[in-house]
Design a protein around this nucleic acid. Structure first.
Length: 425
DNA sequence: TCTGGGGTCCTAGGACCC
DNA sequence: TCTGGGGTCCTAGGACCC
C-alpha cells in the first residue's frame, strides 16, 4: 500500500503558523509579482476566491471579506516543508519516503497489517501536526493514483474523514472511483477531461473499465495505459529516488514593470543566469546548453495574455557551472532577440544538457584558471548563502531595479534569517 | 527497372503536475 | 495598471547510419 501525505493549503498554513490570530480568518497567498492567487485557506475558498485567478480581479472580494493577503515567501515555505518531510523520514526511514513536491510526499507502507493502516494514517497526521504545526491529509490505497484520489476525497469531507482516508477494499475503491470526476484524477488535465466527456466518460469508475488499447490510443500512449492500470489497483508508477538531479534548470520572471530598454533586459538575463547557475552548482552539475527567451507584452491583453515568446540557445564547447561563463553567451543572445520599439514583460533563462561537473574533482590536472574559477564560485555561493541575498554578484547583473518583481506583502522569514526571527514578547 | 529494413539520435511540441 | 514559476515524460518526425 502507498500513502500520500499532502499539506492542507500549505502556503496559507505557513503564514498562519506565525500569526495565530489568523487561525479562523480567511487567508490567501500570491504568486511572484503579486500576480495571481496560489494558495487559499478554507475560509477564503468559501467566499469564492478562485485558485490561480489574477489578484486584481479578486481584490474587491478580498477586501469585502477582509481576507489577509501575503506575497509568497519561499524561504519560509521551503524551511517548513523540510520539517514536514523530515518528520516522515524519521517515522518511516529515508528510503520509504518520496518527496513529490514542496507540500506532498508518498510513503511506501508495505509490511503493515491491513487492519492497522487507518490507525497508522491517523498517527502520521497527528505527529506531523504536533512536530511542525502543519495540518496534513493522508490518503492510503494500493497505487499512487488511487492514494491521490483518496486524499482528495478525504479533504472534501473533513468532518467525517478527519482528513484521513484508507481505500483497502475493492468496494471502497469502486465507491471512491464513482465519486470522482475524470477531471479530478491525477494525470487527467483539462484537454483529456474534455475529450473523455465527449466520449461519454464522466467519472473515474468508467475510465477504470476502459481497455488499455483505448488508453494507449486516446490518452497519450504509455502514460494513459499506466493511468488506467493504476485506477484498477495495479501499481504502474514506481516509487522514485529523491536524489535524482534536475535535467533542466530554469529561472524565469515577469518584470515588475514593462521594459523597453535592452540594457534592462540584459541585466535581468544576467541575474536569472546567476540564479540558475547557483541551482546548477547545488546539484554539482554543469550545463552544455543555455537558452533564453523574452516575451513581448501583448497589445490586447485579453487575447492571449501569455504573449509571444522568442527564444534562442547556445551550445557551449564545454559544459560549465561557472556563472561568468554562462552569462556571456546569455547576454549575447539578448542582442539577437531584442527589437527596439517593443515592450517586454517577461524573460527567462534555461540550462539543459546537464552533466556531472568535472571541475569539482579537478586539482592537479586542471589548469589554474579552472581551479580559481571553482574557488570563486564556492566563495560567492557561501557568502551569498550566509549573508543577505546577492551581496556578491557580477556587474552585468546591474544595480537598477525597475524590472525586479513586486513583493509588497511578504511576511518575515521567521525561520531562516536571524534579523527576522519570530519574537515573543 | 525499382525503391529494404532496422536502428539511433535529436528536436519540437503537447500534455501533465504542483 | 493588471494574469506565476518551476518542472516531468512522452511522441512524432526528420536526419543519418549500415
Amino acid at each position: 500500500m502507498i500513502a500520500i501525505i499532502d499539506c492542507n493549503n500549505f502556503y496559507c498554513s505557513c503564514e498562519r503558523l506565525f500569526l495565530p490570530h489568523l487561525d479562523k480568518h480567511p487567508v490567501v497567498v500570491l504568486s511572484n509579482n503579486d500576480g495571481c492567487i496560489i494558495s487559499r485557506s478554507d475560509e477564503a475558498k468559501l467566499f469564492g476566491v478562485e485558485m490561480a485567478g489574477p489578484y486584481f480581479k479578486a481584490k474587491p472580494l478580498i477586501q469585502q471579506h477582509n481576507v489577509a493577503v501575503f506575497s509568497s515567501n519561499y524561504g519560509l515555505y521551503g524551511d517548513l516543508s523540510w520539517r514536514v518531510m523530515e518528520t516522515l523520514r524519521i517515522m518511516f526511514g529515508k528510503k520509504k519516503v518520496e518527496v513529490y513536491s514542496v507540500d506532498e510526499a508518498f510513503v511506501e507502507l508495505d509490511g503493515y497489517k491491513p487492519e492497522y493502516l487507518p490507525q497508522l494514517a491517523m498517527e502520521i497526521r497527528q505527529k506531523v501536526e504536533l512536530w511542525t504545526g502543519i495540518k496534513v491529509s493522508v490518503g492510503v490505497a494500493p497505487t499512487k493514483v488511487l492514494a491521490k484520489l483518496a486524499n482528495n476525497l478525504s479533504k472534501k469531507n473533513k468532518e467525517k474523514t478527519k482528513c484521513v482516508l484508507v481505500l483497502d477494499t475493492q468496494q471502497k475503491i469502486d465507491a471512491a472511483l464513482r465519486h470522482t470526476k475524470v477531471g479530478d484524477i491525477w494525470g487527467v488535465g483539462r484537454q483529456y477531461a474534455k475529450k473523455l466527456n465527449e466520449w461519454a466518460i464522466f467519472d473515474a469508475y468508467q475510465l477504470s473499465r476502459m481497455s488499455e488499447s483505448f488508453a494507449k490510443v486516446k490518452l497519450g500512449g504509455v502514460v494513459g495505459v499506466r493511468l488506467v492500470k493504476e485506477l484498477r489497483g495495479e501499481p504502474a508508477k514506481d516509487m522514485e529516488d529523491d536524489l535524482v538531479n534536475k535535467k533542466m534548470i530554469a529561472t524565469t520572471r515577469m518584470f515588475g514593470s514593462p521594459v523597453t530598454n535592452i540594457n534592462d533586459i540584459k541585466e535581468a538575463i544576467a541575474t536569472y543566469t546567476s540564479r540558475a547557475a547557483e541551482k546548477l552548482r547545488r546539484q554539482n552539475g554543469a550545463a552544455k546548453t543555455i537558452s533564453i527567451f523574452v516575451v513581448k507584452k501583448a497589445e490586447d491583453h485579453n487575447v492571449n495574455f501569455h504573449g509571444a515568446a522568442v527564444s534562442a540557445y547556445t551550445t557551449l564547447p564545454v559544459a560549465t557551472s561557472f556563472t561568468h561563463e554562462l552569462i556571456k553567451p546569455a547576454v549575447e543572445m539578448v542582442d539577437k532577440l531584442f527589437e527596439a520599439g517593443n515592450i517586454y514583460k517577461k524573460a527567462g533563462v534555461m540550462l539543459s544538457n546537464i552533466v556531472p561537473d568535472e571541475s569539482i574533482q579537478g586539482n592537479l590536472f586542471k589548469s589554474d584558471t579552472k581551479n580559481s574559477g571553482r574557488k570563486l564560485m564556492e566563495m560567492m555561493d557561501n557568502i551569498n548563502f550566509s549573508q543577505r541575498d546577492d551581496v556578491l554578484k557580477f556587474a552585468t547583473s546591474g544595480t537598477s531595479r525597475d524590472w525586479k518583481m513586486r513583493q509588497e506583502l511578504r511576511s518575515k522569514r521567521y525561520t531562516t534569517r536571524w534579523d527576522e526571527l519570530f519574537e515573543v514578547s
